[in-house]
């Protein structure tokens, strides 16, 4: 088999030396704690900025991004409830009535992809 080119062999040697060290660093508890701390700091900074901008928008009686997020969360929760209800109804109906083969369910029209 042909040998890889010189530049590739140099890279492989360097990678073999560096990769295990880096991989063992990311496996340490210190790395996990540092990453968590960085994530927490980022989230805290983001929350401060969001709170500040919300106060500004509320001053002029306009909804802020957090208000929209809250609405979206509520819509999401409602959507989930409806979906679960629909699924439970479907299951219940299947138990009660006994379904005929090939009967379509809501949004179930087979379409080729």
């Amino acid at each position: 088999m042909a040998q890889p080119p010189l530049w590739r062999r140099l890279y492989d040697n360097a990678e073999r030396a560096v990769a295990p060290r880096l991989e063992s660093v990311v496996q340490t508890e210190h790395f996990a704690r540092a990453t968590a701390l960085a994530g927490w700091a980022q989230a805290t900074a983001r929350a401060q900025v969001t709170a500040l901008s919300a106060r500004v928008w509320h001053l002029v009686n306009l909804p802020s991004g957090t208000d929209i997020t809250r609405l979206r969360t509520q819509i999401g929760a409602l959507d989930r409830e409806v979906r679960r209800l629909a699924l439970h109804l479907e299951q219940q109906q299947a138990h009660n009535d006994g379904r005929t083969d090939g009967k379509e369910t809501d949004g179930a029209d087979a379409r080729p992809l």
Binding site: V26, A32, A36, G39
Partner: peptide, 12 residues
Amino acid sequence: GPLADVFGVGGL
């Protein structure tokens, strides 16, 4: 590994 440790050990 790190994927879980950040939340498990790191407490994020």
